[in-house]
Design a protein around this nucleic acid. Sequence first.
RNA 1: GCCGAUGUAGCUCAGUGGUAGAGCAAUCGAUUCGUAAUCGAUCGGUCGCGAGUUCAAAUCUCGCCAUCGGCUCCA
Length: 607
Amino acid sequence: MVQQMSSAQSPAQQQPKIQLPRTSESETLKKIRHTASHIMAMAVQKLFPKAQVTIGPWIENGFYYDFDNPEPFTEKDLKAIQKEMVKIINRKLPVIREEVSREEAQRRIKAINEPYKLEILDDIKQEPITIYHLGDEWWDLCAGPHLENTSELSPKAIELESVAGAYWRGDETKAQLQRIYATAWESPEQLAEYKRRKEEALRRDHRKLGKELGLFVFSDDVGPGLPLWTPKGTILRSVLEDFLKQEQINRGYQPVVTPHISRVELFKISGHWQKYKDDLFPMMGEKEEEGFVLKAMNCPFHIQIYKSELRSYRELPLRLAEFGTVYRYEQSGELGGLTRVRGFTQDDAHLFVTPEQLDSEFLNVVDLILSVIKSLRLDQNFKARLSFRDPTSDKYIGSDDAWNKAENAIRRAVETLGMDHFEGIGEAAFYGPKLDFIVKDALEREWQLGTVQVDYNLPERFDLEYVAEDGTRKRPVMIHRAPFGSLERLIGILIEEYAGDFPLWLAPAQVRLLPVSEAQQDFAMNVATKMRAGGIRAAADTSNERLGKLIRNAEKEKIPVMAVVGAKEVEANSLSIRTRAAGELGVMPVDDVLHKIKDAIANHDNF
RNA sequence: GCCGAUGUAGCUCAGUGGUAGAGCAAUCGAUUCGUAAUCGAUCGGUCGCGAGUUCAAAUCUCGCCAUCGGCUCCA
């Protein structure tokens, strides 16, 4: 019971006692992890003489090392490897740095027959080549830095975590390697803190909370990656949709609705068919000319609406918006919760603009996205990425001139706004560059949420035009944008960001009326009805339980506001308010509570 | 799609070859209760699915499906 009570405390009351250093900022941790990864590789080769080593870098919470081994490693193997590592550490082997020439490095690698190392050596440009030895038994190419002796490691601060398949050089067509992930810290206390945080992250996992809070479900009979939204989850979706729809109407967007399927032809014109044929659900119909596909993108549909009339420059910017549900046949291994699904709803819009309008419209869109991020309290958890094409790749359509214009427009926008950003080369869409808004989930994995894309290419492919002021036909530019990205992914992220404690305006159930005994049930139900009439999501709990149980249930459902009704409250037409965030707030008149809640909802505040 | 792990009641989990279990939830009854669990009874399972081994399979083997951790992919 004590445990359960402490686990129900708010996150603010659970501040970690230990500060965990970040690898990227700690030389000591880098040394620990480089050295530990060498020890792991040595241990693996001792237990599995056929294993060949490849690369083994440090990562944020530890390190991994990729091996080519005839048999995949199992979790049992990990235990044996960890044991072997402890032995090596306890032997207090010196870690010796040696500088050798490229030729000498080649000679030594050939002598121990490690073909992957040879390839790695080819990639090292500078000389001399540095080698690190563990005693006189094992060595690896490594830039360092390292500890001076294995005994500087604390065996109880290292733990092998998992095995995974990984491809050599990250290339699907190359050899499949066995990757071992490990975590390593300065002290056992840091390891314990890391594990505590991992558990906390697991508690915030939207898949777990989504189930507990009854927001969405999956059904094997419906299929993987196809979430079903329960009444509570649907409230979340609707509130988010309504919020954005209102914002968009304020900003001159016009809602449209388009079908869920179209002829294959449509996606051939856009280029999606050629590019993403295998990522679409299989075509309906026998012959390709007559076939239909489920839509995976809304843009070609919105383009058809644009094309349905001769457009004048006076109509531009034309902003067509749709909460469009799309279906993509994602690889089975990629699916997960709400963050990667096969059917999802984009808060999509396409803006058709003149070239002159591009910069200001782009800025307007970024302004909308930033205001959405702020409203959702995601401002501490996002990065802006300029997603440009990889000039060495041929997977893009359109002219260099169009690409340069589009990329420059995005650069100008982030410079104008003075926005923090980083560049992702090769992250562009095939038809144009993007400005993406990236957030982290509870497990520190990064996901793209909002996106703005500048596109000179689809207008070309669909031969879009408008009549300019001088009477000539000109080509518009398109901006694709989705502030949420997808409702599914956004809600997954929000669940984790809030740990299931939604702000009042988003909470599926906002107020629960709790009668102390049966005598107050009618009063509670009447107040709930009155609140609902005022646009508040309120309900009375009339189950035959004691108050303590009713509160417990409401707390477990993470309902922000609980209103206790006893004989005294009925007498005074008042409510005893308890909030999840602040506990007991005392007794207030019913009408005051009603107004306060309404205000809080309207202002996206807490009660 | 690839590598590894997991799959027992609505939920969380126990059960390692010999008659499927617990707590919570649900239902019914008693209780009328003041800020995180009132008491009792009842209901609830093709042990993910399908084959095989065995006198006997939740348990061992194989195949498939789904989920989880990674890899690859991500309009």
